[in-house]
Design a protein around this nucleic acid. Structure first.
Lengths: 209, 209
DNA sequence: ACCTGAACACCGTTCAAGT
DNA sequence: ACCTGAACACCGTTCAAGT
């Protein structure tokens, strides 16, 4: 009846879909956010977009390829948030902590999306070049920040990539514990992050040991 | 023809299966190890055991319950290996490192099993009491070791659980990176573990900062 | 080129029925 | 109690056919 409804049920629109690939990706993301990765079915995605359930295969080779694209987008977003935190935080020690918080916050705010990125749904090896590029880009944001802090003499001058892997493993671990609900007590994630970064800087061994 | 074949195709064995629950669990573990979690189908498990595909429901409520049991067994094994590493290592600082290595080694040696434990396949909250017990037991092994090292004055006397979460997050992160193939260069996991535990003790900040 | 509907070979799960 | 076979409601994917 209403004009908006008319557009929604318009039966004689030929096919096409503006940008179907983009719409499929967005719908996949929304479904994953709502129902988790297991709740994602290609048929439902098509149905929600008013498109045949095989239309998707014009844009993605298979379900795995769709998930790879979802993961790629996740790494792109993550890198942006890391870079923003670093730059807006002043590119110093405080900004380094902000990056860690931004990382964990992304994971906790988008747990299902984060699992697609790291849950073994996409080929571990970076078979997909775009995925590899974005994943390396996110990691590089951390490497760059650490290199700056090393140049300023704030951090030890160990091999930067090794140090970056160490920090990455830490925030990745905190994020996973947060997602798994193992830090369920109120403010558990934030408390652990504060503690982790303080001890990350100073170590857990006593000076007398 | 051979006696062994006769036993395999014996048609008039009534039903039962000795300990079907145990056999189902073992078969699930073997399948997961070979084909990953996605490759696990209840029908194939039944077929491999020469049992109807619905026999499983006499022992597990559904597929999720089977995976929960798999995860529970994983935590039990993990705890045993952590305790063994700690005790055989001499319950000191070197043993603490051995625990970390044992943890990561378990994950890397059993990647699919490890993913069942932490990949969101089982209820994040510990709905299953047995799973909760075993998961807490594995964590407690780390807490106990840290408490000893604190009592000996080797480590800072921060809240032990918080420190344990910090260490857990770190080894968990290293394990995940190792499983995801992100430390692909030869000896990448071992190198990262050595570096991580050295810096875990002493921190990454320079003393002049 | 892009999309469709029917069809294929799978799933997990239920249920009446057998011993 | 424990197990079975048939059936149900789903999947991802293929493919000949339409515009």
């Amino acid at each position: 009846m209403t004009p908006s409804k008319r557009a929604a049920r318009e039966p004689r629109r030929p096919y096409h879909h503006g940008n179907l690939r983009r719409a499929l990706l967005d719908q996949a993301l929304a479904t994953i956010r709502a129902d988790g990765v297991d709740g994602l079915t290609l048929r439902e995605i098509g149905a929600r977009l008013g498109v045949s359930r095989t239309a998707l295969y014009r844009h993605f080779a298979d379900k795995r390829a769709l998930l790879t694209a979802v993961a790629t987008e996740g790494f792109r977003t993550l890198r942006q948030q890391l870079v923003t935190a670093w730059e807006q935080g002043g590119r110093g020690d405080a900004a380094f902590y902000s990056m860690g918080v931004a990382y964990v916050r992304f994971a906790v705010a988008n747990p299902a999306h984060y699992r697609v990125m790291f849950g073994g749904f996409v080929d571990p090896q970076a078979q997909d070049p775009e995925l590899a590029t974005e994943a390396e880009g996110a990691f590089q944001a951390l490497v760059d920040a650490l290199a700056t802090l090393q140049k300023d003499g704030a951090f030890h001058s160990d091999e930067t990539v090794l140090m970056a892997r160490y920090v990455w493993a830490l925030v990745h671990g905190v994020a996973m514990l947060g997602i798994d609900g193992q830090l369920r007590d109120q403010g558990g994630v934030e408390e652990l992050m504060r503690y982790a970064f303080e001890r990350l800087r100073t170590g857990i061994r006593t000076s007398t040991a």
